[in-house]
Structures are given as C-alpha cells and as structure tokens.
Design a protein around this nucleic acid. Sequence first.
RNA 1: GGACAGUUGGCGCAGCGGUAGCGCGUCCGCCUCACACGCGGAAGGUCACAGGUUCAAAUCCUGUACUGUCCACCA
Length: 903
Amino acid sequence: MLPKAYEPQEVEKKLAEKWQNAKLFAAKADPNKKPFVIVIPPPNITGALHMGHAFTNTLQDVLIRSHRMFGEDAYWVPGTDHGGIATQNVIEKKLAKEEHKTRHDLGREKFLETVWEWYHECGNAIFEQFRKMGWALDLSDIRFTMDEKRARAVFECFKQWWEKKYIYRGKRLINWCVRCSTALSDIEVEHLPENGKLWHLRYKGEDGSDGIVIATTRPETIYADAAIAVNPKDERYKNMVGKKVIIPLANRAIPIIADEAVELEFGTGALKITPAHDATDYEVGKRHNLPVMTVINDKGKMINCPKKYNGMDRDVCRKETVKDLDAAGLLVKEEKYNHAVSKCYRCGSPIEPFMSEQWFVKMDELAKPVVKAAETEALKFHPDSWKKPFLNWMTNIQDWCISRQIWWGHRIPVWYCRECSKKGLTFATDQQGKEQLTKVSFEDGAQPIVSFEEPAECPHCHGHDLVQDPDVLDTWFSSALWPMSVFGWPEKTPEMAHFYPTSVMVTGYEILYLWVARMVLTGLDFTGKLPFKDVYLNGIVRDKSGQKMSKSKGNVIDPLDMTAKYGTDAVRFSLLMQAVPSKDIPYSEDSITGARNFCNKIYNASRFILMNMEDIKGPLAMPKEAKELADKWILDRYATAIKTAREGIEKYNLALTANTLYHFLWGDFCDWYIELAKQRFQTEEKEYVMALCVNILYNTLKALHPLIPFITEEIAASLRPFVNEKEEFLLNQKYPEFDAALLNADALKQMEIVQGVTKEIRTIRSQFNVPPGLKIKAVISATDEQELSVVNAQAAYIQLMAKVEQLQIGTNLAKPKQTATATFGKIAIYIPLTGLIDFEKEKKRLEKDIAAAKANIASRQARLSQENFIKNAPQAQIDKTKAELAAAQTLLAQAEAALADLA
RNA sequence: GGACAGUUGGCGCAGCGGUAGCGCGUCCGCCUCACACGCGGAAGGUCACAGGUUCAAAUCCUGUACUGUCCACCA
C-alpha cells in the first residue's frame, strides 16, 4: 500500500536526474517545428539563487514546458552571468574575511584566477539548484557571459560600434563609487531618501560686506566652489550679481553669477557652484566658463584644499568643516533635511560625481529603432502599462558609460603602443612589483588600437611594446548581447538561424532599462530583428508584509529550504497561484501549505483511482459517450478547465491556469465526480466510470505538468498502462486539446440543481447537528416542471451526497410537521427531524431567509417597474430578473409558511 | 516635480458593465472503508471617498485621499 501522504523528496531527486540523463531539455532545432525560445536571464555567480530566481525561472519553465507540449520546438537556453562589480565585491569580501587580504595583495592576475575558481564552484551550485527545481534547462550545455564565444560577441559589438563611431572616449562628470572604485552608468545609481542636513553658510563679501548666505548639503565641497549663483529674476540679489564673495575657510574669492537653474524658493535662493562635484553645477559651470577644481579624489579623500583637511575622508571633512564654520561664525543655520542621495546599486555607498575620462556609447541613433518598435508594438510588454515608462526612458536616453575600473569582466579590447601613446599613458608599480597601466588619457595623446588579442605590432611605429586598456566593460554590455551570443553570434550558426529571434523575455521590471532595453537595442542594430517580441515582466517576491527580502532584514526565505520541506512542486505552485504579470507577490512559508495540500490531494485522488483499477485489465480509452448526468457534467467542466488553462498560458496569466486546474481537480473532480462515481464502482458500470476517471485524471495531470512537473510525471507513470500511453515523459506528450463537443450547458444547469439541493440539505444536517452516520428522510416539493424532472431523475445523487435514506418528491407537497425548511430556486425542501429540531434555531434561519428574500423581491420589482429597464435592457436580462423575482417570492412564501407552522 | 499601479470580508489576492469569488485564518460538526496536508457546514464585505456616464457600475469617466513603484540635476 502506498503511503497516505505524498513524499516528494525521493521522487523529485529521481526524476530530476532522469530528465537530465535523458537529455529531455536539449536543443532539438527541429526545422519542421515552430520554435519557441526563451533565453534565461543569466543569474549572477554571486551565490545561491533566491526566491526571485525561483519565481522568474518557474514562470519560464512553465512557458517552455507548455509550448513543448503544444507541439512546438521549445528551447530554454541556460547560462550564467559573470556579474562584474557584484561578483568582484563578493570575492573581495571573501578574501578579506578568509585571508585578510585585498585584491591588490593578490595582484590582477592572481585575483582573476581566484574569481574563475569561484565561478566553477558557484556555477555548479547554481546548476544543482536548476536541476532541483526541475527547470527544463539542459545542464550539459551551459553558456557563461565570460566564456570564449561570448567574448567574441562582445568584441564584435565593440569593434562595430567603434567603427560606426558609436563608441567614444570622453572626459566628463561621471558617477563614481568610492567603495567599488569605479565609474558607473546613470542607471546603476539609485536615489535613496536620507535624513540629512541642510547647512546655511555665509560667504562674506570681498569688500568686507555681509556677502551672501547659501544653502548646501555638501559643505565639504566648498573648497572647490567656482561661483555663487542666483536666479536672474531674484530681486533680493539683483544688485549683488557680478560682485565677489570669499569662500569661508579657503579664503578664495569667487563671483556671484545669475543662472536660470537656481530655484528662487529653495534654501536662501543662492546656490554654490561646484562644477567638479555636482552634475547641475557642472552644467552651470560650462555655461559660465567656470574653472573645474577637484577636491575629492577617487578614494573619497580630500585634496587641493586647506592643509588641515587634505587627506581627510570626505565625510570626516564634512564634520570638521561644519565645526570650523560654526566656530568662525559663518554657519548661519543647520536644519534637518530629507532628500534623495545617490547610492551605488551594488554596495550602497554614496556616489561621488567625478571628473574622469571614460568610454561611452552614443545612444541617440541606436535608440531610434527601439522607440519605433515599442511605439508600433512590434515589441509588446505584458502588462502593457510598461510601454509608457519604457518609451519615456528610451526617448530621454543618455550616453552609456561602459568602462569600469575593476578587474573582473571583459577587458576593453583596446591596445596602446607604449611608444606612440607615451604621453597619454600613466603607469604605476603594483604590490607585486609589476608595472601596470593605470590611467589612459586620449586628451593627452593615447592612440587606441582595437583588437581582440594583442596586436603583433604597432601599426604606426611597428613597435612591439603594447599594453591593453586597464578597464573592463560594464557587465550589462555582455548581457545586452545575450539573446544573440547564446547562439554563437557573430558566427552564422545553425542555432542562430533557427532559434533567433527568441519568443519572449521573462524578467523582473527592475532591470527593464538596465537590461531589456539594451538587448532590444543591440538586437535591432546587429540583426535588424527584435531579439524577442514579447516582454513579460514579473513582479518581485516580497515578504509577508510586503517588504523586499534582504539578508540584512533577515526576512529571506531560501527556496531550497522550502523545497526540502514541502517539495519543489509545492513551492512552484504556490508562486504560480499568485503569478499575475508585473504584480509583486507577498510570500511566506504559509503561502506554500495550500499548494502542498493540493499536491497531496492529487496524489490521493490518483491513489484512489489506482486502487480501484486493480481488477481492471489493460488500457481504457476515453469513452465516446457520457452515460449519465455526472459524466456529462464532468466532461463539460473538464473541457472548460482545459480551455481556460491554455488561455492562461497564452496570455501569460499563469495564476489563471493554476487556479483553474486547482479548482477543477479538487472542487469538481474530487468533491463531486469521484464521490458520485463511488456508488457505480459496485456495478457493471465500473469499467466505464473508471475509463472516464483515469482519462480525465491523466489529461489533467498533463495540463498540470508544466506547473508541477514532478508529481505529475510520477503519477502519470503509474497511470500510463491504463491510458495506453507509450511515451515515457509527459513533456513529450501532447497538451490536452479543448474539445467544444464536450460542452453541455444543460448538464451544467441540472447539476447546479443537484448541488444546490444537496447543499441545502447538508446545511440543515449540520445546523441541527444530525450525526453524519444518521440517514434522514427528506421531502422535496417542486413547482417548476423542469426542476421537478431534474430532482426526480437525479434523486439518487441527492440521496448519496446528502445522505438521505428516503426521498419523497412531488408537486405542491404539504409541509410535514416538525421539519426544517429550506428553499433552492422554486424547490422547497423539508427535512422531518422530530426530536432533533431546535425550534429557536430554525426560527432564526427562517427569519434570515425571509429578510433576504424580501430585499431581493424589492430590488427586482423596483427594476422591473422601471420603464427604461424594460425598454433598454436585453431580453435575457429581463427574463433573468423575472426568474429571480419569482424564486425570491417562492422562497418568501415557503419560509413564511414554515415559520407559521413552527409557532 | 512627472508618470504609472494599487485601494474588494481578519490577512493575502482574483473579478473589471448585470447587485461579490478564491486561498489562508476564525467558528461548529465529523478519524464517512483516497486524503485530518482530509470531509461537511457557518460566520464575515454599503468592493477607499465624492461626483458623473448608463436601464444597470466593484467593474467605464472625472476628481480627492492614502499606499507603492519607476523616472527626474531643487542644492
């Protein structure tokens, strides 16, 4: 005998291995089939996968498995991302913790070796998780954004964009992360609210006057001030424009200028202009030809400022400056100020606007076709509410800073001749005593040679002393090429020809600009084709109270813990039940129990059917005919469920698919059909009923397989002999087709009556505490001919489901004494319960019925008496309202009679 | 400052023109020979607020409030 409860662990382990060994998920590239392709958003190799990965990948897995079962050439391309800064940070932390070393202690080469070792370790852990989750990824064919083929793609893109002059070198104010010691692109900066302070500082006049008071959040940058700006319309300062004031503590004179960028209302209306350390100020400075002075270096230390502060940390200097200003009587006011501060998206430390020469990609030309694709909806978002923000971002796009001053990543494929570029190259000796190129300046004469490998010689002087640019590319540069590079682009591979463009991109909305936008851009630029036509944006998995999960908050749920405890299918299904496009999902361990219970329900229903198959030989085909009401009804419900399940998949509404199948299997199939079928197991109809049961169950398992692959595969294996299926894996079988011929509105209506009457009787049983084992009598009096005939014909169902021993059915039957009364439609139900009835309770019940009926009658009558309703509403609506009125009137009459009888 | 989304029973959500559904929780009764990870039943909602369109509005429109997200150079 099988155990009572489903135990997923063994089953999942076995099947996960079996699927991989059978190469079930490998690329087929079948030219006769329509391809359905998803490239996985490659997880960073920064550690174990979290709930967000579990969610987005499960969605993709469902789509892939479904389309495979729809008969398409479905292929899900697996891979991981080297994750630039994020990964380098992880390794640096690890080094610090385990060996108390920095990356400089190791040197560039040794450090990179360490990261590669980590990649193999961490990568394997990730693939193991892929396998455990049952994701249909071929683990013997993994791509990595830093492997040889992907590196070729990166180079090709760089070269082409260089030749088209999209890639250029420029000196400008960029976002600098002091902690990660690298430049960042604009979208890698987060603007987070912070409880800061606003300091009002006095700049005395050069002529000894009181001068002007400015407001700033960054007093440590006063040493780099180039001017004070006021709005030209500002009457307060009109006559001060052109005069000079003295920077406090620095004792340097700067002019007061007028510029539109200054807000009249903010602070004092006077703004200090610090071109080197603020983006707005930089623009103002350019307009007024102001000098650019840098007082904070790339390490976040003060430079070029009064001696006292030189070498200080920028935040220490801030405190000291404020203290000294206060002492000098130049600190006018200090107020609390809540504002947004720019932070590094990888480490959270404050971003420093920093003057620096970097590599950029010019975006305006590249963006144009992307905008067009989104506007014409050749590129479609799900949900489409993302179209507008996407277009807004694309049309306001800034040039993309692609160089990073870190070690881990694709090295910029540019070389310099030490002779010809001499003046533009700065070298330093690292801790290993090796000379390293640390800084490249095109302004000072560095001449680039774009090449994948070290060029044999300098094209200018034929010298052989060449060095590579020290920077690496933004990690998103290689990600941007992912939908092409996974298929071997720029090579003209068969995979590229067959699988590109892909079908849908499934990912979180938080990387829509960082990643999705750039994939579309590269795809259109290099292939002229969109890399995918659909973008399905999934939500974020949050904790129970809607907070983002994070280690520091301690509210992280580890998917592997959950799968170990409840089974992978349960975890998957719990996520899918809430999978509405773009919607964040609150998640906790409680979310899983319902899904786990469902899996158990499937298991037990199957176990029950298998038990009853023991004396049946051989396969049973799906019966061609429905014999009785229950059969007609369940086939209708089944057909509808399959139709809706498919629609859910096609419309990316997997919550719809999950919920539909859940309720069909549990609510309809188990609670009603199997319960009704039980009595037929003792008759010669058994084989017929079992044929229906086993085929409906098997097909429902198929429909569920994309969502919960393990349990369905396991049970299907036991059922297979009975449904004459030879194929071993559900994935290779056909998804059930919707069959409109199975629809049966009449059966649906009849069954509704059976269920309604049954429920009324059950309620009475429950309310009067009739013991479950006690069979009762019931009198059913129906006035409507149709209803009467249904009750007459299906009396056996009602007797079975409501546990009624004697059922008396007729028209206008008198209410027996001492009964409980209920009404369904126009059907009166009397349950004689001599000795069991609690009169007070029954009175209350009836009074409640009466009140409800009265309210119903009033509202329907009101509506029917409206001339406009009769005139304008469709006939069906009028008929329906009339029927509802009649039913309510019947209920009222019956309840009132019963109440009178009670007294 | 701009844009978008949400506001439905205790909690989490679905519904998106014909007077409310689901899961969890709560309460009551059941170890009914597949399942107590179960079965049956009950309680619980003026669908944020105010206008409007319509015969009819949770559902469409406008505005308000609150919540959240994204974008944006008010120091």
